[in-house]
């Protein structure tokens, strides 16, 4: 129960940080990405502030044997830079630039009760679902040639 409370508080603080930092203003996000136009560096300070707090704190926290309300810290299994990471990040960046929303600010902006934000969030979940479905069906599909092994 208390782990649900801490998760909820973390979500609330996260939204306040996004709102205070200007991440929920698509125009500001696009001005940050508009390096060839009237570049607005403000959002670099959001990232700087987040790193200045989380880098030392997460280092300290991971020195504990375990989290307060969970049995273990997450094990980071993927360490390689591969095509999947690069193509995923590239596609995400394109969508981020197009709408000015990344996942956190989009979810926070549901509070604006704008139909376009609801559409964005639905499409985002749709994209996640589509990729999962495509990968599952590819994994289940038989090999080219019917999956028959030659005698």
């Amino acid at each position: 129960m208390s782990s649900l409370l801490t998760a909820g508080v973390a979500g609330l603080l996260f939204a306040l940080g996004l709102g205070l930092g200007g991440m929920t203003e698509p125009a500001r996000v696009q001005a940050f990405l508009d390096v060839a136009g009237a570049w607005d560096p403000t959002l670099a300070f959001v990232m700087g502030g987040a790193l200045a707090v989380h880098a030392p704190l997460s280092w300290l926290i991971r020195r504990r044997r375990a989290p307060v309300l969970a049995p273990a810290f997450p094990v980071i299994s993927q360490t390689r830079v591969d095509k999947r990471l690069l193509s995923g990040a590239a596609l995400f960046g394109a969508g981020w630039g197009l709408a000015g929303y990344c996942p956190g600010p989009a979810l926070t902006s549901l509070a604006s009760e704008s139909g376009l934000v609801v559409l964005f969030v639905s499409s985002m979940f749709g994209g996640m679902w589509l990729l999962g479905w495509w990968e599952r069906s590819r994994a289940a599909a038989p090999e080219p040639g019917g999956g028959l092994t030659p005698p």
Partner: peptide, 25 residues
């Protein structure tokens, strides 16, 4: 605005730290 952005970022960092410390996520 740079200072406000820095404070917003600090809140995000604090949130991420809380989630890691308590929930291990």
């Amino acid at each position: 605005p740079f200072l406000t952005a820095l404070m917003g970022g600090a809140l995000i960092g604090l949130s991420a730290s809380l989630l890691l410390l308590f929930n291990g996520r």
